[in-house]
Design a protein around this nucleic acid. Structure first.
Length: 457
DNA sequence: ATACATACC
DNA sequence: GACTGGTATGTAT
């Protein structure tokens, strides 16, 4: 032991940094991670973004300290009851375990970047990312070897990899290619659930039994057909529920698949050493909180579930327990009832170089209101609640909302309400303005029928 | 109902 | 110098 030396982070601060984009991702195995962290640290250490990020991390650590105090005050009797709660939760979760369905999660590989490579093959041989100097949405696998990845600003990508080609996103094109993949997905599950432009969940149980083939064989077929149709590769996860399928699709990325055998022993072995961060729904913050209690893997969650029961909400306990047992319930939710809108809100927001001139900001709210109104018109919806979102130049976010007596969708009304709320915040220096409408309902058109977007019959 | 936080792509 | 945009949902009051 070398007790007298200061912790290594004090001399090499970049070792301690762990922003969203320094986390691991497929394609980064052969990278000098230390160098990457150092470059990222040097590039962002003086920025407002970095300061805000550090502040949040500190607050989470304070929250951990408070929760630990709370834990220390729990009596033996109370802890016994938490143990009992956990036993009950596990028992009822196990009753929800279903092994008989075949779910496949399909995830397109580096989707935006791959589409750009398809349209311009010269990009295949160079490090490239789709995005701007401000933000990268996807990097190709060559760029990932330099540590460039999604959710990283382009200027940092450039510092990691000066030859990095930055390509402007073309969402229309991605949508087109996404539609092509959907034609393939429909063959296997006409009711498949889309998870954005580049991924989908398919319940292939019926297809498997009708055609007498296995989930693995279906995944092969999906990958072949997607390639045939789109000339793009994807990866598949095959498992007995959506959550596990999603985790599996990441295992053999890119252009691969992973099958998790639908039996309890295999599932338990699979989740035992799985880091909690792999659970869809556990992000950086929850990971930090759990790690603060020495909980790093799903196995740890089960072992320390009584601690979780003592410091988190029952909902969080049940979510973490069911996830860590490899039983997804939260995931298999609730399609909207017939006639109900699938969408709960609609919004638009823009980031710009920080501004404080009140007239300029009010004018921007006006143009946002027009944009939002147009988007609402194209779906024939109106809304009851207006929310304005402000991001200050120091990255602090504020929201202000107002619920009306009757729904609106016209640009003038939205603008009027949003401006009123913005005015109350003056003086402010903003880097982002946004407006959101919620409490949505369909507008009857001239024929008296709601148009288009209500899901179901 | 409102505000803020977290997560996902 | 420069760190997104859109949607859903959980937590707290």
């Amino acid at each position: 032991m070398e007790g007298e030396n200061p912790p290594i982070q004090d001399i090499q601060p970049w070792k301690a940094i762990d922003t969203v984009y320094t986390n691991e991702k497929a394609g980064m195995d052969s990278v000098d991670k230390d160098l990457i962290k150092r470059v990222i640290y040097e590039a962002s250490k003086d920025s407002n973004f970095f300061k805000k990020d550090e502040e949040k991390r500190k607050q989470t650590n304070e929250r951990i300290a408070r929760l630990k105090e709370k834990l220390a005050k729990v009596t033996e009797d109370e802890m016994k009851r938490y143990h009992a709660t956990v036993r009950d939760s596990i028992r009822s979760a196990e009753r929800e375990r279903h092994l008989s369905r075949i779910w496949i999660h399909v995830d397109m590989d580096a989707f935006f970047a791959s589409v750009e490579e398809l349209d311009d093959p010269s990009l295949k041989s160079v490090p490239m990312a789709v995005g701007s100097i401000g933000m990268i949405s996807t990097a190709n696998y060559i760029a990932r070897r330099f540590g460039v990845r999604s959710a990283m600003p382009g200027f940092i990508g450039k510092q990691l990899c000066p030859q990095l080609a930055l390509v402007k996103p073309n969402f229309r094109r991605y949508k087109e290619k996404s539609e092509e993949t959907k034609e393939v997905f429909r063959i296997f599950d006409p009711d498949f659930e889309s998870g954005g432009l580049d991924e989908a969940y398919l319940d292939c149980t019926a297809f498997a039994s009708v055609h007498g083939i296995s989930g693995e064989e279906i995944a092969e077929q999906i990958r072949n057909l997607v390639m045939e149709k789109t000339k793009l590769t994807c990866s598949c996860g095959v498992a007995c529920n959506k959550m596990l399928a999603k985790i599996c699709s990441d295992k053999n990325k890119p252009n691969g698949q992973f099958f998790l055998s639908p039996n309890i022993a295999a599932i338990k072995a699979f989740v035992k050493d799985l880091p909690v961060r792999k659970i869809p729904g556990v992000g950086c913050v929850t990971e930090q909180l759990l790690n603060g209690f020495g909980i790093n893997t799903c196995g740890d969650v089960i072992k320390n579930a009584h601690v979780i029961a003592a410091v988190f909400t029952p909902l969080t306990l049940s979510f973490l327990l069911t996830s860590s047992l490899g039983i997804s319930t939260a995931f298999h939710g609730k399609k909207p009832a017939p006639g109900e809108l699938s969408r709960k809100g609609i919004s638009c927001e823009h980031t710009f170089t920080a501004k404080e001139d009140e007239n300029t900001l009010l004018q921007m709210v006006g143009s946002l209101a027009h944009e939002l109104s147009a988007a609402m018109a194209s779906e024939s919806i109106e809304g009851l609640t207006v929310t304005v979102k402000l991001k200050l130049s120091d990255f602090t976010v504020r929201t202000r909302s107002l619920t009306l007596l009757s729904p609106i969708s016209d640009p003038e009304s939205i603008s009027r309400i949003a401006s009123k709320m913005l005015r109350k915040e003056f003086p402010v220096k903003l880097r982002l303005l946004g407006i959101r409408m919620s409490g949505l309902s369909p507008i009857a058109n001239a024929n008296g029928k709601p148009k288009g977007n209500s899901k179901g019959s």
